[in-house]
Structure formats: structure tokens, C-alpha cells
Amino acid sequence: MSNLVTASTLSAENISVWFGERQVLEDVNLVFPGNKVTALIGPSGCGKSTFLRTLNRMHELIPGAGLAGSVLLDGNDIYGPDADVVDVRINVGMVFQKPNPFPTMSIRENILSGLKLSGRKIQNADELVETSLRRASIWNEVKDRLNDQALALSGGQQQRLCIARSLAMNPKVLLMDEPCSALDPGSTRRIEETIGELSESMTIVIVTHNMQQAQRVSDQTAFFLADENIPGGVVEFGRTEDVFNNPVDTRTNDYVNGHFG
């Protein structure tokens, strides 16, 4: 932990979310401190993925999307009047459930794609490609075939390529939406190791359905729950050990012990 870089703090304040007229989240307050990994857990449809998408302004791409509250990155509201969406998405990177490398681009082009897409200048391209791939622990596997199509990689490698692609933008925060749910156990383990390494230099929020994974990778855990006609919200939020071993709320206890969900 010697090379620890103090990372940004992201905090969500009084977040409520709507799809059209339907409210799906109510009054979520969570703080994601720098260098910490936070796991968001809860049954399907509880709004945890939707919440994640409010943290880098991806939620607003859905027609009819609505939001109340604010998300502060080092104290600045990413929904504020001066906030630039492109800057927000660069500072808060995202890795999706299904690996989505760009099929028409090579491995190398995939790494540089964010800079091109956002119209940023590319400096020291070779170095950036190598560092990004190294940070995502995939450099050794692809260093001899950087010009191959990204789709030639296995699913797990594709996902690590997508992580590397996000890292190339040098984000302060990395959001991960069930990044391992489409992967085999071996690939999952490697990505979990990568998450641990990355937390030395950034803030990570991960949505997961896998209880063991949440316990393995995260420092703190938020348990989301929704009910019929009741929008989702955070039932319990605290240190991961406490949430899993010593939950305050009985619903949390039932969920982490597999009684429902």
C-alpha cells in the first residue's frame, strides 16, 4: 500500500430517481470515500444499477428519466449548471455487465477509443496503452497482438480490456455494474484481484449479485431494497463485515443469508 494515491470522494445526497411517472429510488444518501471499494447489493429490481447510472449521468440517456438530489465529486455537483457531461463521464468511468469492446477496433484502438470519442488529445499513445493494460492485468496476454481485433479475446479478457479502456481516461472513480456476471470463475477471480489493486489509486463502486464477491472485494456495503409500489432505497449501509456478519436490519440479515432475493 506504499504507492497509495489519495483518491476522490463521491457522495450521493438525497437521490430520488424516476422513469417517467414511476419512482424507482427514494432519498438515497451514500458516501464513497477515496480508495475504498463499495459494493451495492440487493435483489433484482431494487434500483441499485439505476443508482449506479446516476453517478456518471448515464441515467439521463433514458427517455423520461428524472432525478432529484445531487451527486458530489470532491464537493462539486456533477449535475450542477457548470458541470460538463463529458468531463463527468471521463472522471467517473464505467464498466458494464456484458463486456462491450468495440468490434471494429483493434485492442490498441479500443484503449485509445475514449480519448478519440471525447475529442481529447492523445499523448504518448504507446505508453498509455501499456500502462492501462498493465493496470487491468491483461498486458502480458495481449502485448504481442495489440493490433488484433478485440473480439478475438475471451470473455474475461474482453472485460479486462474494457476496464483498461476506462482506465486510459484516468478516471477518479470507477463504476462497475455486475462486471463478472457473464464470466467464468477464473476470470472473475482475476478481475476481483484487479479491483483490489485499482483501489490503491481510485474509488470504486461495484454492483453485484454475488454475496461472496461483495465480501471479498468491498470495504463497505450498501443493501438496496424495493417493494411493490414502494421505490427502492438503502436499508443498510456500513462496513462490509458488519453488514454481512452483524446486520442491524432483519431484512438485511435475511437477504445476506439467502432467505430471499
Partner: peptide, 18 residues
């Protein structure tokens, strides 16, 4: 694949660059 478009937008792409 909508995932590709979302991926590109999440990397800071504009409508036109995507």
C-alpha cells in the same frame, strides 16, 4: 448492440463522435 453505444457514451463520447 445498445451496449456498444452506452459504452461509447460512458467513455465521454458526444452524440456525433459516437
Amino acid at each position: 448492440d445498445q451496449g456498444l453505444i452506452n459504452g461509447a457514451l460512458a467513455l465521454g463520447g458526444s452524440r456525433f463522435s459516437v
